[in-house]
C-alpha cells in the first residue's frame, strides 16, 4: 500500500480523481442548497484560498504580514480589468490576477527581507495602504466609486476545485525540500543560513506563492460580488485572513481549513443576535485563543494523530479489561 502511494502515476491519478470528485460534488451541492448558504460556502472557499497563501508566508516561513488584502486587491482589480476591459476569458483573468499579485509579492518581498517580526508587519501594513490609496486614485479602477460591471462568472465548483488544488499544492510544498527550508527559516533563521539555506530565496518564494493565492482569491471575489471598491480591501480584511491562520494554528493546513470555515460561517450563524453579533464573535476569538493558544490545530500532527488513533485502540481496550 505504501509503495503504491509513492508511485507518482498513482499520485497523479489520485489527484485528478480528487479534483473530479470535488467538481462533481460541488456541482451537486450547487444545485441543492439555498442561495444564501451557497454564498457562505463561496466565501469560505475564497477565504480559504487566501488564507492558505498567508499560512505559507506567516505560518510556515514565519514572516508576519499584515498586507495580505493588498495582494487580494491587486488580484481582484487586475482580473476585473482583464475580463472587462480586455474581454479575456474568466479563468485566464483569474490566472492573470494571481500572477500580477505574485509579482508584487516579490517586489514587496525584496526591500522588507531585512526586517522581521513587528517591523515587517508594519512595513507590509504600509504597503497595503499604499496599494489601497493607489486604487482609490486610479482612473482605470474607477477610483473610490468602485469597479462596476464585472461578470459574475465565479461558480461554486470553480471555487472548490481551485481550493482543493491549492490545498494539494500546499501539502506537496510542505513535504518538499523547499517547504522544509521555509519551515527551518521560521524555526531559526541564523541556524538556517548556517546549514546552507538561502534564506533570501525561500522568503521571496513564500511571498510570491502566498501573494499568488491571495491574487487568485481576490479575482474569484471580484467575479462573485461583481462590484469591487478599494474599501473592500482595507486593513480589516488583512486582519480577517490573519485571524483565520492564527486561529486555525500557524503553519497547519488542516487548521487553516477549519479556521476558514469557522471564521467565515460564525458571523452568519450569529446573525440572529443582531447588534450583539460582533461582540459574541470577538468573544469567540478570545475564548478559542485562551483554550487553544496555538490555534485549533496548532501542535497537532494530523498524520501522527491518525496513526495513533488507528494503532492504539486495541491496546487501550486491553488495558481497560484488566
Amino acid at each position: 500500500m505504501k509503495k503504491l502511494l509513492n508511485n507518482w502515476i498513482v499520485q497523479v491519478l489520485l489527484f485528478l480523481s480528487l479534483l473530479g470528485l470535488t467538481a462533481y460534488g460541488s456541482q451537486m451541492i450547487n444545485d441543492i442548497i439555498p442561495p444564501y448558504l451557497l454564498m457562505i460556502a463561496f466565501f469560505i472557499g475564497i477565504n480559504l484560498i487566501m488564507a492558505l497563501g498567508l499560512n505559507l508566508i506567516t505560518g510556515v516561513t514565519g514572516q508576519l504580514s499584515l498586507g495580505h488584502a493588498a495582494f487580494m486587491s491587486i488580484g481582484a482589480y487586475s482580473s476585473a480589468i482583464a475580463t472587462v476591459n480586455f474581454d479575456l476569458p474568466f479563468l485566464l483573468g483569474v490566472l492573470i490576477g494571481g500572477l500580477i499579485a505574485s509579482v508584487f509579492g516579490v517586489i514587496i518581498g525584496f526591500p522588507t527581507l531585512r526586517l522581521t517580526g513587528d517591523y515587517l508587519a508594519i512595513s507590509t501594513l504600509g504597503f497595503a495602504e499604499i496599494v489601497r490609496v493607489q486604487f482609490t486614485n486610479m482612473k482605470i479602477t474607477n477610483g473610490a466609486i468602485g469597479f462596476l460591471g464585472i461578470e459574475g462568472s465565479t461558480t461554486f465548483p470553480i471555487v472548490m476545485t481551485i481550493a482543493v488544488l491549492m490545498i494539494c499544492l500546499m501539502v506537496w510544498l510542505e513535504n518538499s525540500r523547499n517547504g522544509r527550508a521555509m519551515l527551518a527559516i521560521r524555526e531559526d533563521e541564523v541556524a538556517s543560513s548556517a546549514v546552507g539555506i538561502n534564506t533570501t530565496l525561500y522568503k521571496i518564494q513564500a511571498f510570491a506563492i502566498g501573494a499568488f493565492c491571495a491574487g487568485v482569491g481576490g479575482a474569484l471575489f471580484a467575479h462573485t460580488t461583481t462590484f469591487i471598491q478599494p474599501t473592500d480591501f482595507g486593513f480589516q480584511k488583512s486582519v480577517d485572513i490573519l485571524s483565520i491562520v492564527v486561529l486555525g494554528g500557524l503553519g497547519s493546513i488542516p487548521g487553516t481549513i477549519i479556521g476558514a470555515i469557522v471564521l467565515t460561517a460564525a458571523p452568519e450563524i450569529l446573525r440572529p443576535l443582531s447588534n450583539y453579533r460582533m461582540i459574541v464573535y470577538g468573544l469567540l476569538l478570545v475564548v478559542i485563543m485562551i483554550f487553544r493558544p496555538y490555534g485549533l490545530m496548532g501542535g497537532v500532527n494530523l498524520r501522527q494523530a491518525v496513526r495513533r488513533a488507528m494503532m492504539f485502540p486495541k491496546k487501550k481496550q486491553a488495558g481497560r479489561e484488566e
Binding site: R177, R180, A181, L183, A184, E187, D188, V190, A191, S192, A194, V195, G196, I197
Partner: peptide, 25 residues
C-alpha cells in the same frame, strides 16, 4: 560548516528532519 553558539537546532522538527536540513546545501 558552522555550528552556531547556543546549538540552535530546529526545535519543532524531529532529529531526522534536523539532519536532513543539514544536507540541504
Amino acid at each position: 560548516s558552522h555550528v552556531p553558539e547556543g546549538r540552535r537546532v530546529f526545535p519543532e522538527m524531529s532529529v531526522y528532519e534536523n539532519l536532513l536540513m543539514g544536507a540541504h546545501s
